[in-house]
Structures are given as C-alpha cells and as structure tokens.
Computed example of a mutant assay.
Amino acid sequence: MPDLAISATGLTKTFGGVPAVRGIDLAVPAGSIYGILGPNGAGKTTTLRMLLGIIDPDGGERRILGSADPLAVAPLVGYLPEERGLYPGMTGREAIAFMGALRGLSLAEGRRRAVALLADHGLPADRPIRTLSKGMAQLVQLLGTMVHEPRLIVLDEPFSGLDAINQQRLEGLIRAQAAGGATILFSTHVIAHAERLCERIAIIAGGEVRFEGEIATARARLPSRVRLSTKVADGAWHAALPADAVLRDGVWQFQLPQGGIEPLLAALIDAKAGIETLAIEPPSLHEAFVAIVGAEPDPVAEALS
C-alpha cells in the first residue's frame, strides 16, 4: 500500500445507545480518488465527521495526513458537508474568500483566487448567492472548499441535488484536483459516480465495512454475463447452453460458465449456428454493490446518475 492520506482502525460511534458505526477500518492512498459507498443511514457521514475531528469516536484510531489530531491539520483539508450553507447576501467572490479565510488564507488572496475560479467555471463573481440557482450555489461552495489548495478534500454526498450537467462539471473538478496532487475522499449512494471516478472504494452498510478495495475486485465477485444471438434458432448446440440461459427478444442471456465460453463456441461452430452477436459483459459496480450490501441503492439517485 502506498503512503496513506487517511487511515482508520476500529472506529466506533454510538448515539443514544444505538450503534451508528461499528469498527470501521479505512486506508485511503495519498493522491487517490476514494469513494465511500452505502445506502442512506449506513454511517457514511458519521465516519467522515470522526475522521475530520468534528466528532470524536467512542473507540478506534485515525490518522489524517500523518497526524493523529485531525484539527492540527485542518488548514490542509477542504470539507464540503452534506448540509449545504452559504450566506445568501454574500457574492460568490466574497463567499469563497470567506471560506478560504477560515482555512488561513488572507481575504485579499482569497478574493483574487475566487475571481479566477469563478471565471474558469463560468460563474458570476458579483451576484449574491440568493440569486443563483441551487446547482450554481453548490458549485460556489465547492470552489470555496478548494480555494486554499488543500492536500485533502472530503466531500459528503457532493452530487446530491445537482442536475446531470452540474454533476458532470463536479466530476471534472474532482479529477482536476486529483491530477494536481490532492487526495479526494467522497461519500455517495449514487454508484455510477464512484464507478467513473474511483479506483478504490469502501462499501458501508449498517455501520460496518462490507468491502474495501479496488472496484475491479468488487466486480470480480460476480460472474460476467453472456449475450448470444444466432442466425439458426434451433440446433444441437442448445445442449451446450448453461442451465440459467434464458431467451429474451431473440437474445440468449446467461452467466459466463466457470469453464469459459469455448465449449459453447465450439458447439455453435460445429452446428453452423451462424453467430450474429456474442458479447461477454463484466458485472457493473451497481450489481456488485447489491450483492455485497444485500439491498438496492436509492433508485431515485440511480436515475439521476
């Protein structure tokens, strides 16, 4: 494992006698884009707040940018909470400069950087926040999270409430920050964003880590799917189809057999079935998520991805 921007071992937290986080371990490589996935109420926000020192864990250990005290390295961290909030009377420039000042940036430098950031993203500098659309205001707050050029950026459900265009813009911002050397940690219950952005993820459900590692490893837990269509509808090759094969709209669909596709391919050729299409499709992260967690993620959120 490379150098870690975040490490956590055995984090626990209980509220009112109800366990919210049950012994979570995390290892976020420096310079990576890392996703924490889980359904609503899984413990994602509580975990992020413990990592950042906003609340203290009941048990376990955490290190942020090499420090056991998250507050000691707070100026090196940018944090976008799930609860959005900007002063509505402030302009975009002043809001970003104010957020930078909270992390040690001078107001003058914050204003200079804010003007450049807003211009780069096609946002007005001098309009009050109250006059901006919800998506524009969220992007202003995100830019304020990054204005002090943090080494670690933590985003809690950053895509929530954004339309498809602004989601795409946010993905671009995240990639750009990572390309500049920052570590990005974000939580989400929209699986598609993690699949596009991350190499490593943690899947949390019921306050526990159900999976931690590379996306490819999570997807490899399930077999690939095969889609097959032939010119000849009937033939001896049918006997080579696996037991789970079903015919839908003229296309056979089934899981890739453990022995591979070669026996079926040989039967198709011998029977002169006339292969029209034969596609082997790996499982999606969404399918792996459902298999690991045992429940569907939010269907509304998935529809917006």
Rank of each mutant, 00 (worst) to 15 (best):
P2G: 10
D3C: 10
A5H: 03
A8K: 05
K13C: 04
K13L: 11
T14M: 00
F15N: 00
G16H: 15
V18D: 00
P19D: 12
V21P: 01
V21C: 08
G23K: 08
G23C: 12
I24R: 00
D25K: 05
L26A: 00
A27K: 10
S32G: 02
I33Q: 13
Y34V: 04
G35P: 03
L37H: 03
G41K: 00
A42P: 05
K44G: 03
T45R: 02
L48D: 07
R49C: 00
R49M: 01
L52G: 10
L52V: 01
I54N: 02
D58P: 03
E61K: 04
L65I: 11
G66I: 08
A68H: 09
A68Y: 02
D69Y: 13
P70Q: 03
A72T: 04
G78W: 07
Y79T: 08
Y87L: 08
P88T: 06
G89A: 13
M90S: 09
E94N: 04
I96Q: 11
F98Q: 06
A101V: 06
R103C: 00
R103M: 03
L105P: 07
L107V: 14
L107H: 13
A108V: 15
R113Q: 11
R113H: 10
V115G: 08
A119C: 01
A119K: 10
G122L: 08
L123S: 12
P124Y: 11
P124E: 06
R130M: 14
L132F: 02
L132G: 08
R151A: 14
R151K: 15
L152Q: 09
L152D: 05
I153N: 01
L155Y: 07
P158Q: 13
P158S: 11
I165C: 09
L170F: 06
L170Q: 14
G172A: 13
L173C: 02
R175Q: 12
R175P: 01
G180N: 14
A182Q: 03
T183Y: 09
S187R: 01
S187F: 00
T188H: 13
T188L: 05
H189F: 01
I191E: 04
A192T: 09
A194Y: 07
E195D: 13
I201R: 06
A205F: 01
G207H: 08
F211K: 10
R221W: 05
S224T: 02
K231W: 15
A233S: 15
A236Q: 15
A236Y: 05
A236K: 13
A236E: 08
H238Q: 05
A239K: 12
A240W: 15
L247G: 07
G260M: 04
I261W: 05
L264I: 09
L264T: 10
L265R: 13
L265I: 15
L268D: 03
D270P: 00
A271I: 07
K272G: 14
K272I: 10
A273E: 02
A273I: 06
I275T: 15
E276W: 11
P282H: 07
H286M: 10
I292C: 09
V293M: 05
A295R: 15
E296K: 10
E296D: 15
P299S: 14
E302S: 02
S305T: 13
